[in-house]
Computed example of a mutant assay.
Amino acid sequence: MAGSPTARRRRLSIELKKLREGHGYTCAHVGEALDWSGSKVNRMETGTGRVQPSDVDALCRFYGTDDELREFLMSLARQAKTRGWWQAHGSGVPSWFSIYIGLEQDVSTFRQYQSEFLPGLMQTPAYAVELHRATNQMTAEDVERAVRVRMERQAILSRPDAPDAWFVVHESTLRNVVGDRSLMREQLERVLNSMELPSVTLQVLPFDAGPYPATGPFTLMGFPDPEDPDIVYRDGITDAIYLEGADDVREYTRAFDNLRAAAASPHRSIQLITSMLKDYAR
């Protein structure tokens, strides 16, 4: 069963949609039969509304599922209502980003391309503070909470069931001085330390790499249960985009593979970062 409340909610939505489509019903049809609105059924299937165990029970009885499946789905509904650890940080986690963290906690494969800043899962507190301070809308308290959440998120790379994490970062992310040179030296040391983790691979896309897919930062997340489809995540300043369509996932997977092919090897990337460390020490 999926681990985080967000992942459970997503799995529940997927299963409910499969049940309806398997019977050839529309949302309106199901809503009318249960004296609900069709939009309520749609919200339950898209994860945009709360799903009560009693609602799941009603749906399963309508679809005629067996008791085992009905109990499983009702259990998902109950567990989806629990709060994730990150939600205790309040305004430090915007609602649109809370979904991402919930999914991130349950990934089995993680592929990320960064072209502006170093990956959040490798950032030092000082580096993260500087990035958050650049957002004028955040109070000092919000910055502190956001940085605390970012540091706690990094635990997924070193836990026993750590996801297979692969990062491609553009050389500009390493040379863009955030804070001062001392801060950047500490940050690059953190990146090198992260690369020693058995679950982590990082490649640097150098300035002289030649043509490569022209995309902004993105993350590909895969999950341990084959019933849970991969997701492409792209974030903005105040919102996020989640792409789950097979065609979208395929295109971004191809883009990431091309970025990996254009980037320096992991060994060469270590050499590049080590060389930059010497520059920051001057």
Rank of each mutant, 00 (worst) to 15 (best):
102 G>T: 03
100 Y>P: 00
276 M>Q: 09
89 H>W: 15
191 V>A: 06
23 H>N: 13
11 R>C: 00
261 A>F: 00
173 T>N: 11
40 K>I: 01
245 G>D: 14
232 V>L: 10
262 A>N: 06
173 T>G: 12
92 G>D: 07
150 R>I: 03
110 F>G: 00
20 R>K: 01
45 E>F: 03
103 L>I: 02
54 S>F: 09
271 Q>R: 14
22 G>H: 01
58 A>W: 01
148 R>W: 07
112 Q>I: 00
240 A>S: 12
117 F>K: 00
102 G>I: 06
65 T>I: 05
248 D>V: 04
95 S>I: 09
179 G>D: 09
41 V>S: 06
43 R>D: 09
167 F>I: 10
164 D>M: 07
9 R>T: 03
19 L>N: 06
179 G>W: 06
91 S>L: 11
246 A>C: 09
232 V>G: 07
212 Y>V: 12
145 R>A: 14
97 F>M: 08
214 A>F: 10
236 G>F: 08
107 V>G: 01
242 Y>W: 11
103 L>N: 01
66 D>S: 02
169 V>E: 02
171 E>H: 03
113 Y>C: 08
95 S>A: 14
8 R>Q: 07
67 D>N: 08
233 Y>C: 06
267 H>C: 07
175 R>S: 06
146 A>S: 12
112 Q>S: 11
51 V>E: 07
16 L>W: 01
166 W>D: 12
185 R>G: 15
68 E>A: 12
171 E>L: 01
22 G>A: 05
218 F>Y: 12
102 G>Q: 02
53 P>E: 03
50 R>Q: 14
86 W>F: 01
173 T>V: 14
100 Y>A: 08
6 T>R: 09
203 Q>M: 09
168 V>A: 11
11 R>I: 02
274 T>A: 15
43 R>A: 12
94 P>V: 00
202 L>D: 10
156 I>M: 13
10 R>C: 00
123 Q>A: 11
126 A>R: 13
229 P>M: 04
58 A>V: 01
281 A>H: 14
200 V>G: 02
26 T>C: 03
30 V>N: 05
181 R>F: 06
97 F>C: 02
89 H>A: 12
106 D>S: 11
187 Q>D: 12
186 E>L: 09
113 Y>A: 06
234 R>A: 15
94 P>D: 04
109 T>D: 10
24 G>M: 08
193 N>E: 15
52 Q>D: 15
251 E>H: 14
273 I>E: 07
71 E>I: 08
70 R>A: 10
173 T>R: 11
70 R>P: 02
58 A>P: 01
207 F>I: 12
